[in-house]
Amino acid sequence: MAGNPITTTTAEDDQNATSLGFDTLVQHAGQGPEHWCTQNALVPPIVTSTTFLLPGIRDKWIDLPYVYSRQGNPTRNAFEICIASLDGAKHGIAFSSGVTTALAVTMAFLKTGDHIICGSEVYGGISDQFRQITSKMGIDVSFIDTTDPKNVEKSIKTNTRMIWLETPSNPCLRITDIKAIAVIAHQHPDLFLAVDNTFSSPYYQKPLELGADLCMASVTKYINGHSDVLMGILCTNNDEFNEKLRNMQLLTGGVPSPFDCYLANRGVKTLPVRMERHQQNAFAVANFLQKNPRVEKALYPGLPNHPQYELAKKQMKGFSGMVCFWLKGGFDEAEIFLNKLQLFKNAASLGSVHSLAEHPITNKYDHLFSNQK
């Protein structure tokens, strides 16, 4: 038993959000006491209740915003409204992890016999989910180089229903032209475009404004920013998409806890200042690596030697904090390098207040993903 999905519209409800800047929205969108039960609190409380009082036994409960915590939670709702606002979206739908968001999209919109186009370089957890789970559902997946829009166009079949992009990509920071792919996708009425925006965050890139139908991010990374929350989020301006994804929240139960939503809602308040410092530090690291004789190649989207530098400047406000580089000497040299790090830690993940370095193909976690490079 549960009520109708709650609405997370921000443009009308949150101080005419479309006219406010990013730094203002991150502090105010979804943060007013009208969005939760405790009317006088300035900070969204952690509402741990799994169930909420109903007015009676007839149908009145259907119109209530909160009935059962899978269907809606005030702490989660405050966070969802905030992130939707930052993405320029009407709706934000939070899930218990980044990979759960991808599974929710597959389950909500695809069926046996459908076809997915996916970037050849995306997060290994996503690509392996498509290979090991989605394929068992009878859904075909083509992994292609999406940095050339022509590759996408010629890969579309009559049963293609979704294009999944990640830009910048994990781990080699390839840039895909979101607007160009969106134009191609929308020439086909049954085809939609989903973009994984994790490496950029909504501060530096807004895929929905570039034509994407869905914007996904691993909240675990930059949005929360403190390596203490596991969560994912999907944002959209499509009311039908929102309804179907809310239904996936309800039916699968793949929702984040109120405490995680509280932490992420708290962490995102510093996203603007953190992203600026991430970028400042990344420029310094990338410039150093480019000049180091032991480095074969270093890539950063904000430097002219990046193959898609001009595109990155065009569709991104900034270039985030990820740097990819190749050491001379191969695996042995990489092992020595990682073992001698002091301030940087050899650990999976990204986007935290910690500085991390990782050799993806041999990382104890990422090596489980067959497509990781």
Score class of each variant (00 low, 15 high):
Pro55Gln: 12
Ala282Gln: 01
Ser127Val: 03
Ala94Asp: 01
Leu165Arg: 04
His359Gln: 10
Pro45Phe: 00
Trp61Phe: 15
His359Asn: 09
Met316Tyr: 01
Pro74Phe: 00
Thr9Ser: 15
Ser352Trp: 08
Pro5Trp: 01
Lys364Asp: 10
Cys235Glu: 03
Pro301Thr: 04
Gly3Ser: 15
Leu250Pro: 00
Asp13Lys: 14
Met107Gln: 12
Glu310His: 14
Pro272Tyr: 10
Asn40Val: 14
Phe369Ala: 10
His28Cys: 11
Pro5Tyr: 00
Cys324Arg: 06
Glu243Asp: 05
Glu240Asn: 13
Arg131Trp: 02
Gly254Lys: 06
Ile178Arg: 06
Lys317Trp: 05
Leu110Cys: 08
Leu368Ala: 13
Val273Thr: 12
Ile156Ala: 07
Pro149Asp: 15
Thr198Met: 12
Ala2Gly: 07
Thr252Met: 09
Asn4Met: 14
Leu54Ser: 03
Thr252Lys: 08
Asn170Lys: 07
Ile117Glu: 00
Leu230Cys: 14
Arg277Phe: 08
Asn265Ala: 14
Thr9Phe: 09
Lys297Ala: 15
Cys172Met: 12
Ser120Asn: 10
His367Phe: 08
Ser142Asn: 08
Asn281Arg: 12
Gln280Gly: 14
Leu173Trp: 02
Thr236Lys: 07
Ile163Tyr: 02
Ala182Ser: 14
Met231Asn: 03
Val141Met: 06
Met107Ala: 13
Ser155Arg: 08
Phe130Ile: 09
Leu20Ala: 12
Val195Leu: 05
Lys314Trp: 00
Asn77Val: 11
Thr106Arg: 09
Asp260Tyr: 03
Phe52Lys: 07
Gly113Gln: 09
Pro293Phe: 11
Leu86Asp: 06
Asp260Glu: 08
Asp190Trp: 00
Asp260Met: 08
Ala104Asp: 02
Leu327Tyr: 01
Phe283Ala: 11
Trp36Glu: 08
Gln342Phe: 09
Ala312Pro: 01
Gln315Thr: 11
Lys244Arg: 15
Asn73Lys: 03
Ala298Ser: 14
Phe369Val: 06
Lys150Trp: 07
Phe241Ser: 05
Met107Arg: 11
Pro301Tyr: 00
Lys244Asn: 09
Arg246Gln: 13
Ser257Cys: 01
Ala2Asp: 04
Glu121Ser: 06
Ala194Gly: 13
Gly253Asn: 08
Phe52Val: 05
Thr50Pro: 02
Thr48Ile: 13
Leu368Thr: 10
Cys215Gln: 08
Leu53Thr: 14
Lys60Ser: 15
Thr158Phe: 05
Thr252Asn: 04
Leu303Val: 07
Met231Lys: 05
Thr24Gly: 11
Asn159Asp: 13
Lys221Phe: 13
Phe192Ala: 06
Met316Ile: 06
Leu263Tyr: 01
Lys291Thr: 15
Gly124Phe: 03
Gln39Asn: 12
Leu263His: 03
Leu173Phe: 05
Ala284Phe: 07
Asn339Ile: 07
Asp366Glu: 12
Val105Gln: 10
Lys373Met: 10
Gly254Pro: 00
Gly138Asp: 05
Asp114Met: 12
Lys90Arg: 15
Ala357Cys: 13
Ile117His: 02
Thr252His: 02
Pro272Gln: 09
Pro258Trp: 02
Ile139Trp: 01
Ala2Trp: 04
Asn4Gln: 11
Leu86Val: 15
Asn237Thr: 00
Leu250Phe: 03
Ala312Asn: 03
Thr75Met: 00
